Amino acid sequence: MEKTWRWFGKKDKITLPMLRQIGVEGIVTALHDIPNGEVWAPEAINDLKQYIVGHGLHWSVVESLPVSEAIKYGGEDTDRLIANYIQSLVNLGEAGIKTVCYNFMPVIDWIRTDLEHPWPDGTSSLFFDKIRFAYFDCFILGREGAEKDYTAEEMAKVHELSKTITEKEKDALIDTIIVKTQGFVNGNIKEGDKNPVAIFKNLLSLYKGIDRNTLRENMKYFLSQLMPVCEEYGINMCVHPDDPPYQMLGLPRIVTSAEDIDWILNAVNNPYNGLTFCAGSLSAGLHNDVPEMARRFASRTRFIHLRSTDVMADGNFIEAPHLEGRGHLIELVRIFERENPLLPMRVDHGRLMLGDGDKGYNPGYSFYGRMYALAQIDGVIATVKTVNSQQ
C-alpha cells in the first residue's frame, strides 16, 4: 500500500515537510477554495501539484471533487454541472492525477454529535450519540415526521433530554452537526454563515420526493456521463460509503451496504467506476461484515481509508483505536496486500492527543493522533508483507 495523508492545502497547519518526516509518500487533497460546481482550472491544479512535488511528495488522490447537490437531486442545472465536472476531470487527467474520491450523500457528509469525546487515557475522539442526534432532528430542525424514524423508547429518552439540555449544548449540536464537520470540505455550509439551521432546512427541502431509487438513477446517469473521459485519461472514480451507513434526516442514502455497492458497480459496470473502501464508515453499520466486503470488492477498490469504529447496543458509536473495533484493520491489510497491493491508503479520524486539541485542526484530522495511527498501520503493513514474502 502507498502511505498517503489527507492534507488541506497550503493553509493547512500540518505542513508537507512535517509529512515527509513521518513517512508519508502521497498526498490526498483538493482545490478547497473552488466553489462547488465550478471548473478546476489547469493552472490551479498544476500550481498545487508542483507545490507538492517541490516538497518531495506527489498528489496521489483527489479528495474530493464535490458532486453538486443539483446533480444528486436531478435539478435543472444537472447537465451543466456534469459538464463542468467532466472538464475538471479532463484537467486533472492532463495533469496526471488519476484517482478521484467523491461521495453521493445528499446535503450532509459524515455525521457526529461530539468532536472531543473523552477516553480514560486523556485522549479524545469523534462520537455519535443517537439520542442527541434525534433531539437535534426532532426539536432543533423540527423535521416533519422525524419522530417516526425513532423507536418509542428512543423518543422517551429524547423527551427526557429536552428537559435538561442547555442552550449551550443546543448550540454545540448545531455547530458540530451542521457546521464543523461540513464547512472545511467544500460543504454547503461554512464557518460564519448566519442561521445555519435555516440554510440546512432549505437544503433538506430540495430532496422532497427524492427516494432511494431516484437517487440511484441520478447517480447512474452522473457516472455514465463521466466514464468516457475516465477511460480516455485513466481516471478512477471512487465512491465513498455513506457515514454512518444508514438512512438519516429523511434523506435517501445509497452507499450503505454490500448490496448498495454491488448495485453501483454493476449499474455502470466499468473498471473506472470504483470504490473508496472506508472501513470506518462501513463498520459503523452493524449490518456490514467489513472483512467480507473487502474480500468481495477488493478488485474494484481504488483507494482505502483505514479507521475503525465500535458500535454500542444503543446505536451510539465511537472512533475505535486503529488496531481494534469492527473495522478489523489488520485483516483488511492482509486482504488488500494479497488482492490489490499497490493501492493508496490513508489513516483517518485520529484521536486528539499530545496537545492536538489546541491547534485548530479540522475535526478528525489531528496530527499526532493520525501520526500514531499511521505508525501502527505501517507496522501492520510491514509485518504482512514480510509474512507474504516468506510464504
Rank of each mutant, 00 (worst) to 15 (best):
K3V: 13
W5F: 11
W7T: 01
F8P: 00
I14V: 14
L19A: 11
R20Q: 15
I22Y: 03
I22F: 00
A30N: 14
L31F: 06
H32G: 13
D33Y: 13
I34W: 04
G37T: 13
E38Y: 14
V39A: 10
V39Y: 13
P42L: 11
I52C: 09
G54V: 09
H55L: 10
W59C: 07
L81R: 10
A83N: 14
V90A: 03
V90K: 14
N91L: 11
G93A: 06
N103D: 15
N103V: 07
M105V: 08
P106H: 04
P106S: 06
V107L: 06
P118L: 05
P120K: 12
S125K: 08
F133M: 05
E144T: 12
T151Y: 04
A152H: 10
A156V: 01
K157T: 01
V158M: 08
K163L: 15
E169W: 07
I174Y: 09
T176P: 08
I178G: 01
K180P: 03
G183A: 01
N188F: 08
D193H: 05
N195A: 10
A198I: 07
A198H: 13
F200C: 04
L204E: 09
Y207I: 05
I210V: 15
E217V: 08
K220V: 11
Y221M: 06
Y233R: 05
Y233L: 04
G234H: 06
M237P: 06
C238E: 05
P245L: 01
P245T: 00
Y246H: 14
I254E: 00
T256R: 14
W263V: 02
W263I: 00
V268R: 03
N269Q: 12
P271G: 05
C278L: 06
G280E: 02
L282M: 13
A284N: 00
L286V: 15
R295D: 10
R295A: 00
T301R: 01
R307D: 06
D310N: 15
V311Q: 03
P321D: 12
G325R: 08
F336M: 08
F336K: 04
E337Q: 14
R346N: 01
V347N: 00
H349S: 02
G355V: 03
D358G: 09
K359P: 02
K359F: 04
G360S: 08
N362C: 12
Y365R: 10
Y365C: 05
S366E: 07
M371P: 00
Y372S: 10
A373S: 15
Q376F: 13
D378Y: 05
G379S: 14
V384W: 03
S389H: 11
